[in-house]
């Protein structure tokens, strides 16, 4: 194969790439990123810890049940949870009859057809997925000032920052700081939006959902402060996003311990076989 041709052609092609890049370096403006209200006032999620954190984390079922109550009484008015079935609630400590009662009493019923084929609804069953508050995306937008309340099933895995992000958003509503309006006079929240420094562009369409202490009444005696409710529902949403987390942690501990022992033995066997062979 051409001992000269390859380096020659390669050199020409490479020179082309390099010249194109050099031109790009010299002729494209390299501006520093613009300073915006969001780049100054946006805040990273608070540091919040949950029972399920870490390699040995387990869910706090009491907390998940409280979080479910917050979802049911507050969030479910606008947000769906379409990947979670009522039967799944048994995993967070509800009994079969309780699950059946929760399904039966759910405010939104399941769409079906009656004997004549007309659209109607029926009470939910444990095998049903949690019904969405809106029939479709258009209906959801129409009721929410053209903003779409996202489905919450996977929300903590679908957002950078995970559960602490959700938690921070829920407790982060506040009035725009005076300094913000002074430095960026145009950045007052537009009508229908709400200032929240934990949201990427500072103005979120969701109105503050958790507003008052005691908004839900916990049956286990926990005091329903706003941060408590936010934490509980965030913990619940960790579970909806990752229902098999405990099984995963348990299997992981067993797997890693087993593999460490096996690897130790494999190392001993390796040294054994090579003993006497200098390498």
């Amino acid at each position: 194969m051409g001992r000269l041709a390859v380096p020659f052609v390669g050199f020409i092609v490479g020179l082309g790439f390099i010249l194109a890049l050099l031109c790009a370096v010299f002729f494209t403006p390299h501006d520093a990123p613009e300073v915006t209200a969001a780049s100054v006032f946006h805040r990273e999620p608070k540091e919040i810890h949950y029972a399920s954190d870490g390699p040995l984390g387990r869910f706090d079922r009491q907390q998940l049940q409280r979080g479910f109550q917050v979802y049911k009484e507050v969030c479910s008015a606008c947000h769906s949870l379409r990947l979670v079935a009522f039967r799944d609630l048994e995993e967070i400590g509800f009994s079969k009859p309780e699950v059946k009662a929760i399904a039966k009493g759910w405010a939104v019923e399941v769409p079906t057809v009656d004997d004549k084929g007309e659209a109607t609804t029926r009470k939910a069953l444990p095998s049903d997925y949690i019904p969405s508050p809106y029939a479709n995306e258009t209906a959801a937008r129409a009721s929410n000032n053209n903003a779409l309340p996202p489905d919450l099933s996977l929300i903590v895995k679908a957002r950078e920052g995970g559960a602490p992000y959700v938690d921070s958003i829920l407790t982060g509503f506040q009035n725009p700081p005076a300094e913000l309006l002074k430095r960026f006079p145009d950045s007052a929240p537009p009508p229908g939006l709400h200032y929240n420094p934990y949201f990427a562009n500072l103005n979120i369409a969701m109105p503050p959902p958790l507003v008052a202490e005691g908004q839900v009444s916990y049956s286990d005696g926990t005091k329903a402060t706003v941060p408590q409710m936010a934490s509980d529902v965030s913990a619940f949403l960790i579970w909806t996003a990752e229902p098999k987390l405990e099984a995963r942690h348990r299997a992981g501990v067993v797997a890693v311990i087993f593999l460490l022992i096996a690897t130790g033995l494999a190392f001993a066997a390796y040294r054994n076989i090579w003993s006497g062979m200098k390498h």
Binding site: F258, A262, L265, A269, S275
Partner: peptide
Amino acid sequence: RRDFINIAAVSFAGVGAVA
């Protein structure tokens, strides 16, 4: 002793594969 280690290592691999 050496045979034992080799046999143990291979057995562990076998158990792992079944698991």
